[in-house]
Amino acid sequence: MGHWLDRNIIEPGKLPLLLALAAFVLTFLVTRAITRLIRAGKGPFGNVTSGELHIHHVVPGVVLTVVGGFGAVASGEEGAWPAIAAVVFGVGAGLVLDEFALVLHLDDVYWTEAGRKSVEAVVLTAALVGLLLAGFAPFGVNDLSQDELQNRAGAAASIGANFLFALIALSKGKARTAVFGVVIPVIALIGSVRLARPDSPWARRFYRRRPRARARSFLRAYRHDRRWSGPRRTVENWLGGRPDPTPRP
C-alpha cells in the first residue's frame, strides 16, 4: 500500500488532490448525517440562525472554498501548505455542493424532489475527481503521443474534436455522458452518435419532421428511465435521505 501511494500519488504530486477528494466526500457524508438527525429531531444538533435568518451551510462552504482556492494558489508547491489548502477547499466544496440545489433554484429545496440535484452533483464531482486521480486527463490529452503533443495543431484538433463530441452529447440531453466524456473522450463519442432524449434541444431541432426517430427516442428514453430510475433513487435516498412527499394539488 505504501509503495502504491508513493508511486501513484505522492511522486506525481497528486497528494493534495487525494486529500481534497477525501475531505470533500467526508464533509458531504458528515453533513448529510447531521441534517438527517436535525430533520428527525434527534441528537444535539440544530439549525444555525442569526435572529430569524437561517444560515445555510453553503455560506461557510463558500468562505472555505475561497480560502482554500486562493491558499492553494499562493502556497506554491513546497511544504505542507498545499495539502492544508486542499483539505480546506475540499471541506468548502463539500458544503457548497451539498446545497447545490438551493443555489440552483434560489430556494430552500433541500428535502424536496428538486433537492436530489445536490446528491447528483456530489456523486458526479467525486467520480470526476476520482478519474483525474486515476490518471485520466480532460479531453483525452493523456491519449496523445509525444509527436502529437509536440505538434500543436494536431493536439488542438484532437481536443477540439473531443470537446465537440461532448457538446453534441449535451445538446442531446445527456448531461452525465457529456461531463464524463470531457475526461474519457470515447464516452462523449458514444453519446454524440446515439439517439437524443425526446426533451432535448437536439430532438426539438432535428426530430421535428422525423416521426420515426422521435418515436424511437421516446421508446429508448422510457426503457432507460424504467431500468435505471429505481436503482438511482435508491442510492440517492441512501446517500442524501428520502425527500418529503410532494403534496397533491
Rank of each mutant, 00 (worst) to 15 (best):
G61L: 00
I34W: 06
A196S: 11
Y110P: 12
V30C: 00
G154A: 15
H56E: 05
V123K: 14
V63H: 10
W111M: 06
A175T: 13
H3K: 14
G46C: 04
A134Q: 02
P231A: 02
P201S: 08
A121D: 03
E52A: 13
R242E: 07
V182N: 03
L104T: 15
V182K: 14
A121E: 02
H224P: 01
V141W: 05
P198D: 01
T177G: 03
V59S: 09
N151V: 06
L53Y: 07
S118A: 04
T65D: 03
L128Q: 03
P201F: 01
L26D: 00
I84Y: 04
G230Q: 11
P211S: 04
V129E: 07
L64V: 00
R205K: 12
L131R: 08
T246C: 11
H105Y: 04
A155G: 09
V193I: 11
A188Q: 03
L164Y: 10
L95Y: 01
A215F: 12
Y207M: 08
V103E: 04
L144T: 04
S192I: 00
S200C: 02
G240M: 08
R36A: 12
F163W: 09
S75F: 04
F218A: 11
R39G: 01
D108W: 06
L104Y: 13
V109R: 08
V66D: 04
P138Q: 05
A203D: 06
A85D: 08
R210M: 08
K174V: 00
E148W: 01
L131M: 07
L189C: 05
